[in-house]
Write a protein that binds this DNA or RNA. Structure first.
Length: 566
RNA sequence: GCGCCCAUAGCUCAGUGGAUAGAGCAGCAGUCUUCGGAACUGAAGGUCGGGGGUUCGAAUCCCUCUGGGCGCACCA
């Protein structure tokens, strides 16, 4: 804004020729000596104007109307325009931070906009395992960041309680139930892919016996499935609650069948000309003739979605030859449902193992005439658990996996949240179990926590000594405190860019950087030493109070606790 | 074979086309007997996987090769 106005003024004054306004970025430079904020726009303007970047920068700088929070504008070598913040303005930010408290850096960038984040969305066939939980942390943190950027956010969990896996779950519980009653029943071997080995099913079976006795001996899988589902969701919600994750809406895929959305979606696709029926071998896509002939021999006719018309590599089956839809059709119907709910932004967190699936949905949404651009899919790369430098394999179906609950028990909710968050979603994540368990300074979580703890400790000690920070003269704050304040003021930009890019890991890195700036200051800037004059003491106490506010805000944004003691 | 992701210090990773590529940990050398040390300081560590290209300027964008991960069902 500031620079844009200056450029316009320079153009009006004839110091710069006419050109299209470029996108202007202002950001903190890497070196502190280069000022607090810097702008490189003059270099980008060298080409369109045909002028020397340094001259352009000077022309712009000469027309900048310096606001009160800027103390200096400097033009440097290649053509950077550097800004320095006014120090007394900086000092006053301590009051601003304290006044805003828990809502400090609550932005209104997206005020009035509604966003929905869909995440976790695991079917209730078992407890959440570690692989899934990365999406839980990322999804919830994105939701928190969007809220901080001004959105009203709804968190949604999409699930399917029908299908083969749920039938297997019902059957598995039935076997455990009969076993619990002491009836002769064969428990399948551990390599059986249709049997769930988890210990939790034994617990369910015991409880079911206690509640229902032997009344279900003759029943099929159905009542067992219903019971297991109910219990499973209870466990999942409880687990998520331990890491401060909760959902506003649980959306059942079945409701899309009940209200006719699924068949309606198929009909509309057909009217739009994207549907044909044929056996796989006649697929006009890339399938080689004869390739599928044998395996499709004897099968009926399937309903296909001509997604190749929209650029897909091959067409997709929507309704199988046995008459049942594939997952794609209800998935498309679900996204239409979401789009019709009037959100301004839809975020969908998916694991990398589902990376092919969302494209079909996108083609479907497009075919139905919707604008897919408000849908943002975040593909989370897989988590590799590492112990003693070696990978620990996991499996959902067998019983030997590491559940999120186990992990929280071994470490803590905060450690799990931070470790799973502090990596770009695009990046593969090695979860180092040794490091996570280790409560030492190798563990960044404790380093960040300790900053908050230290602030709280000072306040506690001051209260004990009867020293208050009322009426502090913030002019007494020195260079070290200003260093922290500059870093603290970046939080707004971090939230903003993190919200725009849907990159929640940035807040995690920022938190660590902020703590890195803080700890040396804590050593250097004493507040309660007896030889410090009372005015300085008050100012420093006030400063640490503001620092605590910032740390609490950052920790809360990550869904972590802000402990006052270790 | 096709699609998505990754390759940056010994290890784990940041890096929104801009200034001398940054942290943490490990290792090395120090401080400190404290408003809770789970701390602080310093030095060292790099042809940003290879090769082309675009640009005033590339770790970042494009092409290509190599090496990894995950997918590529009439399963969900």
């Amino acid at each position: 804004m500031l620079i844009e106005k200056a450029i316009q003024a320079a153009q009006a004054a004839g110091d710069l020729p006419a050109f299209e306004m470029p996108t202007i970025e202002i950001r903190p430079p890497k070196q502190a000596a280069q000022g607090d904020y810097a702008c490189a726009v003059a270099m980008a303007l060298a080409k369109p104007t045909g002028k020397n970047p340094l001259d352009i920068a000077n022309a712009i700088a000469n027309h900048i109307q310096k606001p009160d929070f800027v103390s200096a504008v400097e033009v440097v070598k290649p053509g950077f325009i550097n800004f320095r913040l006014n120090e007394s303005w900086l000092q006053q930010q301590v009051e601003a931070i304290i006044t805003e408290g828990d809502r400090v850096f609550q932005l209104d960038t997206f005020k009035g906009k509604r966003a929905q984040v869909e995440f976790v969305s695991a079917n209730p066939t078992g407890p959440l395992h570690v692989g899934r939980s990365r999406g839980a942390m990322v999804g919830d943190t994105i939701a928190r960041i969007l809220e901080a950027a001004g959105y009203t956010v709804e968190r949604e969990y999409y699930f399917n309680n029908a299908g083969v896996q749920m039938t297997n779950l019902g059957n598995s519980l039935r076997i455990r139930y009969l076993e619990a009653l002491g009836l002769p029943v064969e428990v399948p071997a551990s390599d059986n892919t249709t049997f769930y080995q988890g210990e939790y099913l034994k617990d369910f079976a015991r409880d079911l016996v206690a509640e229902q006795g032997n009344s279900l001996v003759e029943a099929d899988w159905q009542p067992f499935k219903e019971y297991a589902e109910k219990r499973m969701f209870g466990i999942i919600k409880q687990t998520l609650a331990r890491v401060n994750v909760s959902h506003d809406v649980f959306f059942n895929e079945n409701s899309l069948y009940d209200d006719g959305s699924v068949t309606h979606t198929a009909e509309v696709l057909e009217k739009a000309g994207y549907i044909y029926r044929s056996a796989a071998s006649q697929n006009p896509g890339e399938n080689q003739p004869g390739e599928h002939d044998e395996e499709n021999a004897g099968k009926g006719v399937a309903t296909w979605f001509r997604s190749t018309a929209l650029g897909d590599a091959k067409d997709r089956v929507l309704i199988k030859s046995d008459g049942n839809p594939t997952y794609s059709l209800p998935d498309i119907a679900y996204h239409i449902n979401k789009l019709n709910r009037g959100f301004d932004l839809l975020v969908n967190i998916l694991g990398a193992d589902h990376n092919a699936q969302y494209k079909v949905v996108q083609y479907g949404v497009e075919a139905l005439g919707f604008d897919p651009s408000i849908i943002h899919v975040i593909i989370i790369q897989l988590v590799k658990m590492v112990r003693n430098g070696k990978e620990v394999k996991m499996s959902t179906r067998r019983g030997d996996y590491d559940t999120l609950d186990d992990l929280i028990d071994q470490t803590s909710a905060d450690v799990v949240r931070y470790m799973l968050l502090a990596r770009s979603p695009d990046s593969h994540l090695n979860f180092d179990l040794d490091l996570a368990v280790k409560q030492s300074n190798e563990n960044p979580v404790y380093y960040i926590h300790n900053a908050h703890v230290r602030c709280a400790g000072i306040a506690r000690e001051a209260a004990k000594q009867g020293i208050t920070d009322d009426g502090a003269d913030l002019g007494k704050l020195g260079a070290a405190e200003l260093r922290f304040l500059r870093k603290a003021l970046e939080l707004g930009d971090v939230i903003d860019s993190s919200a725009h890019e849907l990159a929640p890991h940035r807040i995690a890195f920022y938190a660590h950087e902020l703590a890195t700036v803080f700890h040396p200051i804590y050593d250097e800037v004493r507040a309660l030493q007896p030889d410090i004059d009372p005015a300085t003491q008050k100012a420093r106490l006030r400063f640490y109070r503001a620092a605590q506010v910032i740390f609490k805000r950052v920790l809360t944004l990550m869904g972590m606790s802000a402990p006052e003691r270790m």
